[in-house]
Write a protein that binds this DNA or RNA. Structure first.
Length: 422
RNA sequence: CGGGGCGUGGCGCAGCCUGGUAGCGCACCUGCUUUGGGAGCAGGGAGUCGAAGGUUCAAAUCCUUUCGCCCCGACCA
């Protein structure tokens, strides 16, 4: 991608509407624009990040035996009445009527829809277990949308639902999802903890949250400084030491990015969603559900990884792997520069953002730092003349000057190192 | 929903108290110079002052209503 063809500009001034750092940086870096309170348009760079996050989620969900579906956002009220949530969900549920005055909701979650669907598909224990997931826009009329992407009224979520023939099997899948989630957040390069949690409105009696550690998080978790134990502060209000290893606990703020629930019969029972077990007896599905806030992950990643100059994307979700900055008039057309671009494109197809604009170098440096692409390849007169180029690592600020020909190999090795750690 | 704040070119703001031709910075367009950390000079385009109603010879400014946005608090991916 060439910057000269990119219609999205960065903002040099702080947007007045944004307070939290992720929101400010997302606006300044040209990732999103607000349409209404808690409702945002995703610009091209943000979509690239979303796709990368989604790809990792899909790979891990598929590896865990889940199958992808896509359920309707528009849901008739009668399904919700069956589970009692048409009333219980309250004003957070977006409600609307069609032209025949039939009531609908915009789905904030999909337990009702998937349960209804699966009860049509599955009649025998022989067809179980079944694990389905989707990645889709959800709607919640939040009492107070805030913090930009962190709490919107419309957001992208990966939600998964499991259907089992026994509680033991359902718990097995629950445990597998816990492992899957840990892998997903590890691959995304996010420091996180799994904590025991309350299950809230979704229901059930077993639930864990996945928290990304960040100074500006909405949640507070107690974390052991020695082992991996952590708990939601509501679950461990007076604990001073770790119940596992006895070490000191610390209170840290975090952002909830994932939540897994064991549901049991909470939805299958009221919806009459049953199968025949091996004894020929009709019993309700044993269910679980598993959510990840996909759009929230973008904001959480920025909250966790930024500095005063801008975003520092983890390599796994960066919109581009590398950005090439040509400095000075005509530099963008130099043979050496075009040659390097071609090699880089071969190495990482579609992953190079070329800042070919005829603007002052300082402007390019500022924008590159703001956008947070992991590797900057800086090509200025004094180095290119000698056949060299400079590589700047956004995370560490490290700068290396080396022959242009060696740059692809260096970057390739660096990325291998980073991605193999996870 | 309770409390607080703000709506003025794309963005950030001044002007409002004390009514009288709508301004500044950034961004944008043209030209010349400049080119390794947000360039300089000259010229230029762009605003129903959130909306409605009222007061007045005259309203961005005063009054009323209303909508929107942000921040702080009250069972949230």
């Amino acid at each position: 991608m060439k910057a000269s063809l990119d219609p999205v500009q960065t903002l040099h001034e702080e947007p007045a509407e944004a307070e939290v750092v992720s929101h400010r940086l997302m606006l300044r870096a040209g990732l999103v624009r607000k349409l209404a309170g808690g409702v945002y348009s995703y610009l091209p760079m943000a979509v690239r990040v979303l796709r990368k996050v989604e790809t990792i989620i899909r790979q891990e969900m598929n590896a865990a035996g889940a199958q992808e579906v896509l359920l309707p956002a528009l849901q008739p009220s009668d399904l919700w009445e069956k589970t009692g949530r048409w009333q219980a969900y309250g004003p957070e549920l977006f409600r609307l009527s069609d032209r025949h005055e039939r009531a609908f909701a915009l789905g904030p979650t999909h337990e009702e829809v998937i349960t209804d669907l699966v009860s049509q598909l599955i009649r025998s224990y022989r067809q179980l277990p079944f694990l389905a997931y989707q990645i889709q826009t959800k709607f919640r009329d939040e009492r107070r949308p805030r913090f930009g992407m962190l709490r919107g009224r419309e957001f992208i979520m990966k939600d998964a639902y499991s259907f089992s023939a026994s509680e033991e099997d359902a718990r097995r899948i629950y445990a597998r999802m816990q492992e899957t989630y840990a892998r997903i957040f590890l691959r995304l390069g996010l420091e996180h903890r799994m904590v025991e949690a309350d299950s809230g409105l979704i229901g059930g009696n077993l639930s864990h949250e996945f928290m990304v550690m960040a100074d500006s998080g909405e949640d507070t978790v107690m974390t052991c400084e020695k082992c991996s134990w952590a708990s939601n502060v509501e679950k461990a209000p007076d604990a001073k030491v770790c119940p596992v290893c006895g070490f000191m606990l610390a209170s840290r703020t975090a952002i909830e990015v994932g939540h897994v629930f064991y549901l049991g019969h909470k939805y299958s029972d009221p919806m009459g969603s049953t199968f025949l077990d091996s004894a020929g007896k009709e019993i309700p599905f044993f269910m679980g559900c598993y959510g990840i806030g996909v759009s929230r992950i973008l904001a959480a990643a920025i909250e966790q990884s930024h500095d005063e100059k801008g975003i520092i994307w983890p390599v796994s979700m960066a919109p581009y792997r590398a950005t090439v900055l040509s400095l000075g008039p005509g530099m963008g057309e130099r043979r050496e520069v075009l040659g390097l671009l071609e090699t880089m494109e071969t190495l990482w197809p579609g992953e190079i953002y070329f800042d070919d604009r005829e603007i002052r170098p300082g402007m390019k440096f500022q924008d590159a730092d703001l956008r947070g692409i992991p590797f900057q390849i800086i090509l200025g007169e004094r180095h290119v003349e000698k056949g060299d180029g400079e590589v700047k690592i956004r995370l560490t600020g490290e700068r290396l000057v080396l022959p242009l020909k060696e740059i692809p190999a260096l970057l390739s090795a660096r990325v291998q190192g980073i991605l193999s750690e996870s």
